[in-house]
Simulated scan of single mutants.
Amino acid sequence: MSINLQKGQKIDLTKGSGGLSRIMVGLGWDEAQPAPQQSSGGFFGLFKSHSQQQIQDIDCDASAILLNANGKLYGREANDCCVYFGNLTHKSGAIRHQGDNLTGAGEGDDEQIMVDLNRVPADVAKIVFVVNIYDANVRGQHFGMIQNAFIRLVNLENNAEICKFNLSENYYGMTGMVVGEIYRYNREWKFNAIGQPVKEASRLQLLLNMYA
């Protein structure tokens, strides 16, 4: 039975699980639909005054950041420490991104990241899952325009959902989000529901800088 997590709640993934190894981390979100406006600015500026046409779709990108035991970026190269739309598979083969979703349209997961816990390098202590809005500053977009955001974990051996964390706070003005993390503790893997907003994250590098 899936567990609905609250912000800051932690659960065991491998302890007493009978050998849980392969999991899918699904991240989802929907673009909030603005109400029709008569004013020139529109709702959060989503409508152009001269044409009332909606601006570009909000392009959210999910990524996995690998950290060492000191909480710093793992490895010496960018592709050592991050799996994202530009580096879909970690060189260890343990983490695989299923590809970029440019709009967030449709129900269910918008992006999925597969993790084989048994293949994660021994000196990786934590895998942090983040989402940022690509080009947010240029497009005038932020997480106040996003609704129904979540992260969920699924056991790939039986496709059973392990847990889900719905992000329900007001994230107006924020362009990035540290959603959750999988981390080692006493040789076991755990998951922590974080939900920490980041004001400036229109590029993934700005999130990586938090752990440099």
Rank of each mutant, 00 (worst) to 15 (best):
N137Q: 08
T175D: 04
L206H: 08
Q205P: 01
K164F: 00
R76N: 11
N170W: 00
D80N: 13
K15M: 00
S202W: 10
V178E: 14
Q147G: 02
D30Y: 13
D61V: 11
A125T: 06
V124H: 00
E169C: 02
G41N: 07
H97T: 01
D123G: 12
E77M: 08
S2H: 10
A149S: 13
M174C: 15
G173V: 05
Q52D: 13
L73E: 01
S21K: 14
Y74G: 05
L102I: 00
N4M: 08
Q56C: 07
R187A: 11
G144D: 08
Q6F: 15
I58Y: 11
R152K: 15
L207N: 08
L5S: 10
K91M: 01
T103C: 10
G108E: 03
N87Q: 03
L73N: 10
Q56W: 07
N79Y: 11
A212M: 06
L13V: 01
G108W: 01
N158L: 00
D109Q: 04
Q37S: 12
D61N: 14
G28Y: 04
K10F: 02
L67A: 01
K48R: 12
L156M: 14
N4E: 10
E111K: 09
D123Y: 12
S51C: 13
L208N: 04
A94P: 02
A35I: 00
R203E: 13
M1D: 14
P121Y: 12
K15L: 11
D109G: 06
N118C: 09
L208W: 02
A160F: 10
G176Q: 02
D12E: 14
A136K: 01
K7T: 01
V115M: 04
A160W: 10
Y134P: 00
R152Q: 13
M177H: 02
V128P: 04
A201T: 03
Q9E: 15
Q98R: 15
G99A: 03
A149L: 06
R96M: 05
Y211A: 09
D109S: 13
M24S: 15
D61W: 08
E161K: 15
G176S: 06
